[in-house]
């Protein structure tokens, strides 16, 4: 029996703005199933986003939704969470939104270990503005602003999050829709700052410029280049070249920010 998404969708707001072949619909559906599997009341869920293709998602789902300014998803989310910690706060954004213009908010949300779940949609490109290179665009790749190939080094979003102090870090791809739902559920239920980086295809902004225009081909690429973390750990550096690990990359316990603050200042 197929899953019925209608309880969570703002049906009047569909069709969405995403291009044919975009991976973001897969992410939205996985996210809905993950939230549903926990059973949170819709009234208790807040979703924040910044600016970009990924950040349009909250407009389509029936929660308390906050579409903010470019890069500031986590900064707004932090205000909401600290002012009312009972709310389940989910912040999302794309690779440019979260790690370029919003990079400072990203690392500090990780550092605080505030109980927010962050979903980073990583499609290696600024899609909404038409395909400029982002902090995750692979070196050598073409973008409208790297007509000779990208000179920049890449961020590894998951490693950045681990280094900055996030306590749950996972990575998945849009090929892995079912494991994605499970990882999202784990992230949402984790106490502390959790992130899931989702590798997604942008046939329009990235694929066209890099001979990967077919959406199916981009999903195929994700399947071929991703390696489950258990297997990844047994591989040699030579075998790892050009590939990336997926699954739960980091899962530790540390005091949650608001709980620690409240205990520290005598708020019960």
């Amino acid at each position: 029996m197929s899953y019925d998404y209608s309880k969570y969708l703002r049906k009047g707001k569909i069709p969405h703005i995403w291009c044919p072949g975009c991976g973001y619909g897969i992410i939205m559906k996985s996210m809905i199933r993950a939230i549903d599997s926990i059973g949170w009341e819709k009234d208790d869920v807040v979703m924040t986003s910044g600016i970009g293709c990924a950040s349009r998602l909250p407009g389509y789902v029936d929660f308390n939704t906050l579409h903010t300014t470019h890069g500031r998803s986590l900064a707004f989310a932090t205000g909401v969470k600290v002012a009312n910690p009972k709310l389940n706060v989910i912040a999302m954004g794309g690779d440019g939104d979260m790690t370029a213009i919003g990079g400072n908010h990203f690392i500090h949300a990780c550092r605080r270990n505030i109980n927010i779940t962050c979903f980073v949609f990583n499609n290696f490109i600024y899609g909404m503005t038409g395909g400029q290179y982002s902090p995750t665009t692979p070196k050598g790749s073409r973008a409208t602003t790297s007509p000779y190939g990208n000179s920049d080094n890449q961020f590894d979003i998951a490693q950045l999050a681990i280094g900055a102090g996030a306590t749950f870090v996972a990575r998945t791809t849009t090929y892995h829709a079912v494991p994605m739902e499970k990882l999202m559920k784990q992230a949402l239920e984790h106490k502390g700052f959790s992130i899931v980086e989702i590798i997604a295809g942008c046939p329009t902004g990235y694929g066209r410029k890099n001979k990967l225009a077919s959406p199916a081909g981009m999903i195929e690429w994700q399947k071929e280049h991703s390696v489950a973390i258990a297997q990844w750990e047994k591989m040699t550096d030579e075998e790892k070249a050009g590939k990336f690990p997926i699954g739960v990359l980091h899962d530790v316990e540390k005091p949650e920010y608001v709980e620690a603050y409240d205990a520290n200042v005598g708020l019960s």
């Binding site: 906050l66 900064a75 707004f76 932090t78 205000g79 969470k81 400072n104 690392i107 500090h108």
Partner: peptide, 17 residues
């Protein structure tokens, strides 16, 4: 907060909550 932009954003977030 980590910077002034975040301080303004969080202030608005607190009010929304």
């Amino acid at each position: 907060m980590e910077d002034e932009l975040a301080a303004m954003a969080a202030t608005l977030g607190g009010s929304i909550a």
